Computed example of a mutant assay.
Amino acid sequence: MSRLRSSANRSTLVCAAAVLLGAGAVLASTTAPVRERIPAAWPRIGADRVWLDEEMLGRWRDHGWWTPVVIAGLAAGAVLFLGWALAQFRTGRLRELPLGQPGVTLSATALASVMADRARAVEGVARADVSLLGRPRRLRARITLVLDPDASPEAVLRELAGGTVAEARAAAAPRALEADVRLTTRPHRAPRIR
Rank of each mutant, 00 (worst) to 15 (best):
V50Q: 03
G134E: 03
M56E: 12
R194A: 15
V125E: 00
A32D: 13
E36S: 15
N9F: 12
A166P: 01
P68E: 03
L97Y: 03
A168D: 10
V146S: 14
R3H: 14
G163F: 00
D117K: 14
V125Q: 06
D180M: 00
V156F: 00
P136K: 03
A87Q: 12
V104S: 03
P43I: 09
A171C: 11
P187T: 05
A72N: 07
L160D: 01
R93N: 00
R35E: 10
T67A: 14
V19L: 15
V69F: 09
T185F: 14
P102F: 03
G100C: 07
D48Q: 06
A28G: 06
S113N: 12
R137Q: 15
R35L: 02
L27K: 06
C15T: 15
S7I: 14
E159I: 01
V69H: 06
V146W: 10
L106P: 06
L177I: 05
P68A: 03
V104F: 04
S6Y: 13
G83H: 10
W66Q: 14
R35Q: 15
W42A: 15
S113C: 03
A18Y: 07
A119E: 00
E159G: 08
W65R: 08
R44V: 06
P33G: 01
A172L: 06
V50R: 01
S11N: 13
T31E: 09
E54I: 06
A85M: 11
L97S: 05
L99C: 05
T144R: 15
T105R: 11
A75R: 04
G124M: 02
L97N: 08
D148W: 08
T109E: 15
H63W: 12
L52I: 03
V70I: 14
G22V: 13
A108I: 02
V181Q: 00
R5G: 10
I38H: 04
R158P: 00
T31S: 13
S152D: 15
A41N: 10
A108K: 01
A116T: 08
G162S: 10
L139D: 05
